[in-house]
């Protein structure tokens, strides 16, 4: 199996690469912007799992480049993980639309741009799977994180539609909705220890969900119930809350 990971410098992406290489002996394509760091990860994956690995320059916000990027891959991947994500401070994104735009472009527009190309290819080949790392933040907008949340809501909806479209071709689309994960993205936040998962743990759950041909994965599992409660709060009350 050939697995392409987009936004491969995130901690979750690296954990997913390790998990697929370990369990599936998958060959890995890592794609992101920091090539020096990617090269280090390529060497790491090769030595750890005795698989093939390679890295490619990929800029989620440079939509025009996506087709050329995908065409350059040979052989084509059997699975694609979209793990690129950007989450600056909410206030920064409120004050500076450039920040907000970057959030939308990395978390959603960039995903749509490349995944359309991937979906076309998979549809033609009648083969493949897509894993999108979205977020529970997209389940309901909260004042503390709604710009990021909106981008993830769009991504979640997009993946849902893509799944609907590709179902007939037997192509799995897995939406991953993580809660808190202990990564560089959340390093400056004071996360509640009990509700925080480690990237390796999340990657194992993602792999299991892939194996079981699941559609939507909350990780860890309790986020499904936490979000059910949060979504169930009537808007009249929700708008008064300090979430």
């Amino acid at each position: 199996m050939n697995l392409l990971i987009l936004g491969a410098n995130s901690d979750v992406a690296y954990a997913v690469a390790k998990t697929f290489a370990k369990h599936k002996k998958a060959d890995i394509y890592l794609a992101s912007r920091d090539m020096k760091l990617l090269e280090k990860k390529v060497r790491d994956l090769k030595t750890r799992y005795e698989i093939k690995a390679a890295c490619f320059y990929f800029d989620a916000m440079d939509f025009e480049s996506h087709l050329k990027f995908y065409q350059s891959l040979d052989p084509k991947p059997d699975g694609v993980v979209y793990a690129a994500g950007y989450m600056p401070d909410q206030e920064a994104a409120q004050k500076d639309f450039k920040e907000a735009k970057k959030i939308f472009e990395i978390n959603f527009s960039g995903a749509a741009a490349i995944l359309e190309i991937v979906a076309d290819d998979f549809q033609k080949r009648g083969h493949g799977f897509i894993i999108g790392i979205s977020s529970v933040a997209g389940e309901r907008g909260r004042q503390s994180n709604y710009i990021y949340g909106a981008s993830k809501a769009a991504f979640t909806a997009y993946l849902s539609g893509l799944r609907n479209r590709l179902f007939k071709k037997n192509i799995q689309v897995l939406t991953v909705l993580p809660g808190f994960i202990n990564t560089k993205m959340t390093e400056s936040m004071d996360l509640p220890g009990l509700l925080t998962a480690q990237p390796d743990e999340v990657a194992e759950y993602i792999y299991k969900a892939f194996r079981k041909n699941r559609d939507v994965l909350y990780t860890k599992w309790y986020w499904k119930w936490i979000m059910a409660v949060i979504k169930g709060i009537p808007e009249k009350i929700f708008k008064r809350m300090g979430l």
């Binding site: 280090k40 990860k41 060497r43 790491d44 030595t47 750890r48 560089k184």
Partner: peptide
């Protein structure tokens, strides 16, 4: 903890 890559064996 994130500086955890294997370089060579």
């Amino acid at each position: 903890k994130r500086f955890n890559k294997i370089i060579d064996f």
